[in-house]
Design a binder for these strands. Structure first.
Lengths: 123, 123
DNA sequence: ATGACATATGAATAGTTGTTCATATGAACA
DNA sequence: TGTTCATATGAACAACTATTCATATGTCAT
């Protein structure tokens, strides 16, 4: 007998703390859920899209307005709006040649506010 | 690289709603704030990092544990932990050769919950 | 019909990112 | 001391992404 080595951490073998890993594994959400969550945040992880969403917090706007506001090309804005549309974050209505975009989710503001709270806590 | 565009990206002079754009422009947060916010969400926009954070919701874990839990290489986990560290989302303590990571922010859970709420609302 | 105009979209490209591989660091132990 | 083990890290590479450019779609006016 070499003493109680059963709980000695060893990484190269397999797992350091097997009980912890086993317990955490059970508490983990479904793989698909985590994937979807990451995909959602990926949408928020671009300055242009964040800007567009903040703009839509304030007012319904057409593509042209947004492009002017952000000083970017109509094409760039349209591409990003497509991504926001696919994520069901914005909706749109057509009025003649103009397409007006607006928010389609009431949680985005809260998510952003929580994000800002984290940022503001950094010294 | 950027902005060799002397042309104003307005669609055509009259169609832009100047009043709306002007008002929204005043309500927009600082450029830097929006950039920081996007950077934060970029951190959340990766499945591996989301998984790590969810694991740390449940327990403090060492690098080895996390790698075993997620069935990924130690190196990959370590690289991702560095990003989470830089974003001040996780903290660590050293105990001998083992480094234990844990959450360093109480808002992440709320942000994730809001994200899940959005996802679950999609039909 | 034709032209003007707002928006959408495919292709190309430059920039970014996550993982792997190899190696370095740092701590415990013989 | 040298070895072992947990972690960190730089370089390389493949995969992905945001913008631009060119063009298509769709609507209104003439």
């Amino acid at each position: 007998m070499l003493g109680r080595n059963t709980e000695v951490p060893s990484c190269s073998s397999n797992v350091v703390h097997e009980e912890v890993v086993a317990r955490v594994r059970e508490e983990m959400p479904l793989e698909e859920t985590l994937y979807d969550l990451a995909e959602l945040f990926k949408v928020f992880g671009d300055t242009t899209r964040v800007k567009i969403l903040y703009a839509l917090f304030a007012a319904e706007m057409c593509v042209c307005d947004i492009a002017a506001l952000l000083n970017m090309s109509q094409s760039a804005i349209s591409h990003q709006l497509r991504i926001l549309k696919q994520a069901r974050l914005v909706k749109f209505r057509r009025q003649g040649r103009v397409v007006y975009y607006s928010l389609d989710d009431e949680h985005v503001k809260q998510i952003f506010d929580q994000g800002l709270t984290h940022i503001n806590e950094l010294t």
